[in-house]
Design a protein around this nucleic acid. Structure first.
Length: 114
DNA sequence: GTTCTCACA
DNA sequence: TGTGAGCA
């Protein structure tokens, strides 16, 4: 399928798909016309990308994690043990971010109480 | 009509 | 990431 079709099925925009490619997250084939060509697998990959982005991961981190996710799975399988360290860092980063937000919320609550 | 690349305030 | 230009 072409870029607009994949974008439609994935609920995103062609712009975003080109960006993913630029970041090394997708490698669509090229038609003689120069148009990008995506297979059905691309849709699953895009969904994985969106899931990881929603988890707050950087495109760089996603580029490393993506190849460790089986093509046909919705769940993130621990196929690459060596990746656990990197994921642990992301987890720690998110934990720090959450703590920061909780602190910010506490300050706002105090301000609102007057 | 659709996609491509490149550039931008 | 959006938008527009200028092509093919």
């Amino acid at each position: 399928m072409r870029i607009s079709e994949l974008a439609r099925q994935a609920g995103t925009t062609p712009r975003a798909l080109r960006y993913y490619e630029e970041q090394g997250l997708l490698r669509p084939a090229r038609l003689a016309s120069g148009y990008r060509h995506y297979d059905e697998q691309a849709l699953r990959t895009v969904r994985h990308i969106q899931l990881l982005l929603s988890a707050g991961l950087s495109t760089a981190a996603i580029a490393e994690i993506l190849p460790c996710i089986p093509d046909d799975t919705t769940v993130l399988a621990p196929t690459c043990p060596e990746l656990l360290d990197a994921l642990g860092e992301e987890h720690a980063r998110i934990t720090r971010a959450v703590e920061g937000l909780l602190a910010a919320r506490t300050i706002l609550e105090r301000l609102m109480r007057g």
